[in-house]
C-alpha cells in the first residue's frame, strides 16, 4: 500500500513503486486534470507541485515522493496564487484546445511563488519547459503578468 498526500488529503492505493505519479493520479485516483503529452519530461502537460516545486509527474515514480505534499491542478485553486492564475487565464481567454493549460497554470503558479513580480526573462525561464501546441504563448505571458498585477505589455518588443 502506498500513501500520498495530494491536495491536502491522504490517499492510499496499491501500485508498483516505479509507476509514474501521473498514471496514479489519472487512472487510480481519478484526478484527470494532469495530462499525458510525452512521457519523458519534454512537454510539461503533466506538471504538478511537490512541496511547491513544479515537477513532471510523468517521470516521477510514486515510490520516490514519500511524505511530500503534492498539489495538482484540481487543488491549486485553493492557494491564493493558484486562484489568481486561474482567474487571469479566464480573464484573458488564454486557451485554445486547452490540453496543455493545466501544466501551464501549475508552472505559472510555481513561477509566481518564486518571483511574485516576474520579468519577461523570468517568464521565459519558468515557462519554457511547457509546450503549448496551439501556441497561445502571447496570452500565457500576459496572463502571468496580470496575475502578478503587472502591466501586460511585452517588454521584449523591439
Amino acid at each position: 500500500m502506498t500513501a500520498l498526500n495530494i491536495n491536502g488529503k491522504e490517499h492510499h492505493f496499491e501500485s508498483a513503486a516505479d509507476t509514474p505519479l501521473l498514471w496514479v493520479l489519472r487512472d487510480v485516483l481519478n484526478l484527470k486534470g494532469s495530462k499525458y503529452g510525452c512521457g519523458m519530461g519534454q512537454c510539461g502537460a503533466c506538471t504538478v507541485h511537490v512541496d511547491g516545486r513544479p515537477v513532471r509527474s510523468c517521470i516521477t515514480p510514486v515510490g520516490s515522493i514519500g511524505a511530500a505534499a503534492i498539489t495538482t491542478i484540481e487543488g491549486v485553486g485553493a492557494t491564493p496564487t493558484g486562484s489568481k492564475v486561474q482567474q487571469a487565464w479566464l480573464d484573458l481567454d488564454v486557451m485554445q484546445c486547452g490540453y496543455c493549460q493545466a501544466g501551464q497554470i501549475m508552472s505559472a503558479t510555481a513561477l509566481l511563488e518564486k518571483h511574485p513580480k516576474p520579468t519577461d526573462k523570468d517568464i521565459d525561464a519558468g515557462m519554457r519547459d511547457n509546450i503549448c501546441r496551439c501556441a497561445t504563448y502571447v496570452r500565457i505571458r500576459a496572463a502571468i503578468k496580470r496575475a502578478a498585477g503587472l502591466p501586460e505589455t511585452d517588454s521584449r518588443e523591439a
Partner: peptide, 14 residues
C-alpha cells in the same frame, strides 16, 4: 471559451 472554467480546474473534458 465555454469550457475554459472547467479546464482551469482540471475537470475531465478531453
Amino acid at each position: 471559451g465555454v469550457d475554459s472554467p472547467l479546464i482551469v480546474r482540471g475537470e475531465p473534458v478531453f
